[in-house]
């Protein structure tokens, strides 16, 4: 019985710390209060939003492929979860990069709706 409890606790801890890309879509949709649109996400991702760069300036407009930092040329691994299992599995990382990259491309934070749309689009990419 005690063993079972430990296993259950470990399982719980594992699920609590590791997120899946779908979890983020769910979270952002909930925060936004509306359903996400992959089509809107694609438009948002690939066009400039007031800043010098769009998301695709570094991630390319087909994020199933690798990108390059627009300024330093450093290689960036693909963003689409279907081809890169490491993406969108850690809330601290996801929040950090949305904070920074939204600031760089929009000069402000992204709304929950914008993040939900991007997530929805990225999840359609195969």
């Amino acid at each position: 019985m005690r063993h079972l409890l430990i296993i259950a606790a470990a399982l719980f801890a594992a699920t609590a710390s590791a997120e899946t890309p779908r979890d983020f879509l769910t979270r952002f949709e909930k925060e936004a209060g509306t359903a996400a649109s992959a089509q809107r996400g694609a438009r948002f991702f690939t066009s400039k939003q007031g800043g010098e760069w769009s998301c695709s300036s570094c991630h390319t407009d087909k994020p199933t492929q690798a990108g390059r930092h627009a300024k330093t040329e450093k290689a960036i691994t693909p963003l689409a979860p279907a081809v890169n299992a490491e993406r969108f599995t850690d809330a601290a990382k996801v929040d950090k990069w949305f904070r920074r990259n939204c600031n760089d491309t929009l000069n402000r934070v992204c709304s929950a709706q914008e993040k939900a749309d991007v997530m929805a689009w990225l999840l359609t990419l195969k």
Partner: peptide
């Protein structure tokens, strides 16, 4: 780090 050569590179 929030103004890191024109980019937001802030960390915790």
């Amino acid at each position: 780090l929030s103004h890191h050569f024109g980019s937001d590179a802030s960390i915790d």
